[in-house]
């Protein structure tokens, strides 16, 4: 097992074609060739922190507010979960908790952990990192569920004073937070995951 970089070659990030290091553009798909994406980890940090910054107001401000017969009550993500728990709706409560609380927070922790483990070359099997990376790549988009829920409810439930659901500022912040963390996960160069570990057995 030998990577293109160890063989002194450059593999295209987009299509996998193998090139000499002096080649500039991929002869197959035209992408500018880089052995590793430049500043991949810094970019990941930058987008991750941006996402985190927007995640704070997303939790502080109400996601949406119900207006039933003139009385209006808005609730944040956490208040919503508590509300459903108190009602005894454990299924709803756990779905919302997974989509808007556990997945985003888990994403921040995992991306942060991945970047740190690559940067400091923590003694962690590459396969464990691969699992984490794929988890983040796969799961990140699913946080958008909450944004769609708010958009659907607020556009459908509109019967003036009888019953209306209005979007709250938290929903917009949440949408931005999801977009920024998705970009953050995409900025990770997955090839870095394997760089230090794959060498070890070769040199023995």
């Amino acid at each position: 097992m030998i990577s293109a970089r160890e063989a002194g070659l450059v593999g295209c990030h987009r299509c996998g074609t193998v090139h000499q290091p002096q080649d500039h553009d991929c002869r197959m798909c035209g992408k500018t060739l880089k052995s590793r994406k430049p500043n991949s980890l810094q970019k990941t940090w930058a987008w991750l922190i941006t996402g985190l910054v927007f995640y704070i107001p997303a939790n502080v401000f109400p996601l949406l507010s119900n207006r039933v017969l003139g009385s209006e009550d808005g609730h944040t993500i956490i208040e919503g979960i508590i509300l459903f728990f108190k009602k005894g709706d454990f299924l709803v409560a756990s779905v919302i908790m997974a989509a808007s609380l556990l997945i985003p927070i888990g994403k921040f922790l995992i991306v942060g952990f991945l970047v740190l483990s690559i940067h400091y070359r923590w003694n962690l099997s590459a396969h464990a990192r691969l699992v984490l990376y794929e988890l983040v790549e796969f799961i990140g988009r699913w946080s958008m569920i909450d944004v769609f829920v708010v958009a659907l409810l607020a556009s459908l439930i509109r019967l003036g004073a009888i019953i209306s659901i209005l979007p709250g500022p938290g929903s917009v912040c949440f949408a931005l937070s999801v977009v920024f963390t998705m970009i953050s996960a995409q900025s990770i160069d997955a090839k870095l995951i394997w760089d230090d570990t794959s060498k070890e057995p070769k040199h023995e």
Binding site: L9, G11, T17, V18
Partner: peptide, 23 residues
């Protein structure tokens, strides 16, 4: 390194776009 890969013909190789391993 002896890996049995032929580096002369780069068109006969593919580097995994996700982990850079040569095939």
């Amino acid at each position: 390194m002896t890996t049995g890969l032929n580096y002369q013909n780069l068109d006969g190789l593919i580097a995994c776009p996700h982990c850079d391993l040569l095939h």
